[in-house]
Design a protein around this nucleic acid. Structure first.
Lengths: 343, 343
DNA sequence: TTGTAGGCGTTATCAG
DNA sequence: CTGATAACGCCTACAA
């Protein structure tokens, strides 16, 4: 004999409601609501009854009803410039890991490196009344800024550091990282040092800036050796840009690529062209993607703390959501130069 | 003199409502609602008034209220097994491109190659009452199946073809693709042919199966040369598995890797070990990731139609949402062997 | 600690 | 073609 249980097949409506759970548990809807939300004012015994009723019915809250009633959804939104870059996938992953135990859903938005798409996403997500927002960098439209300000919703900025506006941010100094690469190439006695960057997002430009300044200081800067293109960064593009650069300026003996994928392309093309790395040219990448430890030769790169950034940004956002008054608004997580064979 | 306009700064509430838009437009809320939803029964003139009022107020619908009232959100959910695989990013991208013009938001779920995580995601997303669901493959828990069935929500399955259950699916035959690779290596006169697969998801196993069967038919199958590991696929893992395999079975002269990243790792390791590809060993990958055209040597791979899969799956889902009775439930988009230098 | 009353912003239904 | 009315499922505020 099967145990007496609520027969789902007799339900006419699509899905059990809080009211039904309450009926089964023999309490009022509000008590059921409180019990399910883990509000401590509910007696242990009632809470147990409610939970087992919910279980029995297969009850899942209706997020729309909850959001409408409470004017707030159990959601945080993250907007990254790209999903094609493994970097941001890792950031998203750590954010998930922090948010999930708190019962917060993570909405993922891809702005495709466009300020306008980002603004649209922000508008869209704000409509959902998220608990908080995680954004990438500081480069956005005025409209987006106004939306954020008006919304009053907690917001943490990832990847770069704030230059004084007082935003909550978690990242590292892109400028310093660029400078560190220049330093490294200079220490390697390189004389004709190039920068190759694609995508031209704010962070790439800041890296280029730090790099350039350091070279200028060493009187070793040649603007002809700065290659910038708005095309999306990729291994194929790295091949192409490296070949072009070496053809035009054969004297180049050191190159900093704004992203590891470009650098990886360059290594492959060098192999094909018979250019020996690092003997003839030192190559340095950026981000230290997992595959960069396995290239031939292994790629020297700046390791960026993206997992930590995602985690700390998420934790910071949580504390803002809780209403904590934060002491430190800016968290510098640093970076590390991974010196390998390519330089 | 600035034009007379609604002064947002005097608003006490956070956000304009439909009612306010209606007031400004001088119509009833329901008319405003209809106008904004583009329901044709509204007079042109009123519609214009409503739209300009909405514009003026910066009105954005409250998705929660809409979902609650209509028992349906303007959302479709997609669940992929991983975001680390570029493959699925491309699928997501095409889905977006199809859904966005229809005003449908795309919820992205990452199941991390886990049936249990997938079930949780399905439960979570169904709670949101999406218009439809896009899932990857057919491998899922019984619980997930029941949820899907009970929900009655349109669902399209991506990447693989249905083996008779009558689901709506868009993909290609993983088994045939595996067989095609075997065929190719046999045609290259390879005698000691290995398979290397990681992750061991359903699709990888199906590829292995097709590959194995074709080799058996040619009496060229050696089970010792089938390397399977549950570890996540990566370039680093490819390096490692290739080195191990060549050490244990130096006579191997052809390898099919279940994913391009593994194959790319193998190419790098071969370079390091001084094993000439394809002279000593033919190497074939799977998926034809963008970078595979640039490896040294360039990688032979199966090009899978992931952009097309995303697009067609999204279109199919849209038509199911519209209530179309579909003639064809299964769409085979095929695959293509890209023969390059590595085989 | 529990319950009652009311409303969140929108849409479905049906009447005009 | 337009509008009044009543939900949708849940939560806040207050009362018991």
């Amino acid at each position: 004999m099967s145990p007496p249980r609520y027969d789902k097949s007799t339900r006419t409506k699509g899905r059990p409601t809080l009211k039904e759970v309450a009926q089964v548990a023999g309490v009022s809807p509000i008590t059921a609501s409180r019990a399910l939300r883990g509000i401590s004012s509910v007696t242990e015994e009632l809470a147990v009854r409610v939970h087992s009723a919910a279980e029995q019915l297969g009850y899942v809250v209706n997020p729309a009803a909850r959001a409408l009633a409470s004017a707030c959804s159990q959601t945080v939104a993250v907007i990254v410039p790209s999903l094609g870059n493994q970097l941001f996938i890792e950031v998203l992953e750590s954010i998930h890991q922090v948010m999930r135990p708190h019962g917060l859903e993570v909405l993922i938005g891809n702005a495709h490196y466009s300020r306008y798409e980002e603004e649209d996403l922000i508008r869209q997500y704000l409509a959902h009344q998220p608990q908080g927002l995680l954004l990438t960098g500081f480069e956005r439209t005025e409209g987006a800024r106004r939306l954020l300000e008006a919304s009053q919703i907690p917001c943490v900025y990832m990847m770069d550091l704030d230059s004084g506006v007082g935003l909550h941010c978690v990242g590292f100094s892109q400028v310093q990282a660029g400078a560190a690469v220049a330093e490294h190439l200079l220490a390697r006695q390189r004389k004709h040092i190039a920068f190759v960057g694609a995508q031209l997002d704010q962070r790439t430009l800041l890296r280029a800036e730090g790099f350039r300044h350091r070279l200028q200081k060493a009187r070793c800067y040649n603007p002809m050796l700065e290659v910038l293109t708005p095309q999306p960064s990729s291994i194929g593009l790295g091949c192409e840009l490296f070949a072009q650069l070496m053809q035009r300026y054969p004297q180049v003996d050191g190159i900093f690529f704004g992203n590891d994928d470009l650098a990886q392309g360059a290594l492959l093309e060098a192999l094909r062209m018979g250019i020996s790395i690092p003997q003839q040219v030192s190559i340095v990448g950026f981000n230290d993607l997992p595959s960069s430890a396995f290239t031939v030769p292994r790629l020297t790169s700046i390791r960026t703390p993206r997992a930590a950034i995602g985690q700390r940004a998420a934790e910071l956002l949580l504390s803002l959501i809780e209403g904590d008054t934060i002491g430190q608004r800016t968290q510098d997580l640093g970076f590390e130069l991974m010196v390998r064979e390519s330089s």
